[in-house]
Amino acid sequence: MTFGATPPPGPQPPRRSRARRFLPLGIAAWMVLEVWLLIVVAGATNGLTVFLLLLGGVIAGAYVIKRAGRRAWRKLTETLQAGGDPAASSKDPAAAGGDNTLPMLAGLLLMVPGLVTDVLGLLCLFPPVGKLLHRRAEKLLARRSSGTPGTLGDAFQQARMHRPDGKVVQGEVIHHDDDPPAPRQDPPLTG
Rank of each mutant, 00 (worst) to 15 (best):
M1L: 10
G4M: 08
A5H: 11
A5F: 13
P9C: 07
P11Y: 06
P13Q: 05
P14D: 11
R15K: 13
R18S: 13
R20S: 14
R21T: 15
F22E: 11
P24K: 05
W30D: 04
W30V: 08
L33F: 04
L33W: 03
E34P: 01
I39M: 06
A44I: 08
N46D: 15
G47P: 05
G47Y: 10
T49G: 04
L53H: 00
L54P: 01
L55M: 10
G56R: 03
Y63A: 15
R70H: 14
R74S: 14
R74I: 14
Q81D: 15
A82Y: 07
S89I: 04
S90P: 02
P93I: 01
P93E: 02
A95T: 04
A95Q: 05
G97Y: 03
G97I: 04
D99H: 03
N100P: 03
M104L: 12
L105E: 02
A106R: 01
L109K: 00
L109S: 05
L110P: 00
L110W: 00
V112G: 02
G114E: 02
V116N: 03
T117Y: 00
D118C: 05
V119Y: 01
L120W: 02
L125I: 04
L133I: 12
K139H: 13
L140V: 13
L140C: 06
R143A: 15
R143L: 12
R144I: 14
G150S: 03
L152A: 11
G153T: 09
D154P: 05
Q157V: 08
H162S: 11
R163V: 08
P164H: 12
K167G: 14
V168L: 14
V169M: 13
Q170S: 14
I174L: 13
H176W: 10
D177R: 09
D179A: 13
R184W: 09
Q185H: 09
P188E: 10
